[in-house]
């Protein structure tokens, strides 16, 4: 059993008066893929965004409970959100490359952090793009705008951009829901490659996707964590009735 890298205890989140997360207890061990599934509005994306404090950007959000990343309390008053987000990167539903070249997109985090060594940057670009399985497609036009790429390529460049700052955890918020099936399966292949080196947490609407790539799956409903287990168990032999109903398509 590997070490727990991220733990959440009794996590509540309120949008104004509305309670969106009702006491989540969920731990993540190092490496591997955990999928968060559940019907729309169940709180899985909200939960994901608490893990690198992206919910800070939304006004009127109150969060109670503790999230610990390697014994560091993410919500302690002196937590450094910038540092946290370097170690816990995020990929979004809509591919959001910056309006720069592919090369600049990938090294953006590093360059702003002050890295100037051209050789090192070149190496990082190649390594990250290879890891994100998009190198072969873009290697000949690294200095063209990333906006000219297809949606699937853009999304993989966004993954490469996150990899370039070498995070420990990568959060993905429905990364394939805006993509066509071919691009989606390329992203899935990318994630399967990365699962040995990174702790990956992915929110997905697509149950097949979860069953294909995730080692563990957590089922959310109405702001509560219903069940979390090995993916195989969740899909073949769920412990809770609600999970079974959802998996078998009886609602949601």
């Amino acid at each position: 059993m590997s070490e727990e890298i991220l733990t959440t205890q009794d996590l509540h989140l309120y949008y104004g008066d509305k309670e969106a997360l009702k006491g989540i207890n969920l731990d993540f061990t190092e490496k591997g893929i955990t999928a968060l599934i559940g019907p729309s509005g169940c709180g899985k994306s909200t939960y994901l965004r608490t893990l690198n404090r992206m919910n800070d950007l939304i006004p009127n959000v109150t969060i109670t409970g503790t999230i610990k990343f390697k014994d560091q309390d993410l919500y302690s008053p002196n937590a450094d959100t910038v540092q946290i987000r370097k170690e816990i990167g995020m990929v979004f539903q809509q591919p959001n490359p910056f309006p720069f070249s592919i090369y600049d997109n990938v090294i953006y985090g590093l360059r702003i952090a002050g890295e100037k060594d051209k050789e090192k940057l070149d190496a990082v670009v190649e390594k990250s793009l290879r890891q994100a399985a998009v190198w072969d497609e873009v290697k000949d036009h690294l200095h063209e705008s990333a906006l000219a790429l297809s949606g699937g390529q853009q999304q993989r460049v966004c993954i490469a951009r996150v990899l370039a700052v070498s995070p420990e955890i990568i959060l993905l918020d429905e990364p394939t829901s805006a993509l066509d099936p071919v691009s989606s399966s390329q992203i899935e292949a990318t994630l399967l490659n990365l699962r040995h080196d990174y702790t990956i947490i992915i929110v997905t609407h697509n149950l097949q996707q979860a069953s294909r790539i995730a080692d563990r799956t957590a089922f959310f409903m109405n702001g509560e964590l219903v069940e979390v287990d090995q993916t195989k168990n969740i899909f073949m032999n769920p412990a809770k009735k609600q999970t079974e109903d959802y998996i078998s398509g009886r609602f949601g």
Partner: peptide
């Protein structure tokens, strides 16, 4: 999404504004 992208990359808000 550009702001989120910048912040999620570990840029500070100021860096996100000025560099992205």
């Amino acid at each position: 999404t550009q702001r989120e992208g910048g912040l999620a990359l570990g840029l500070s808000r100021w860096e996100t504004v000025t560099k992205v």
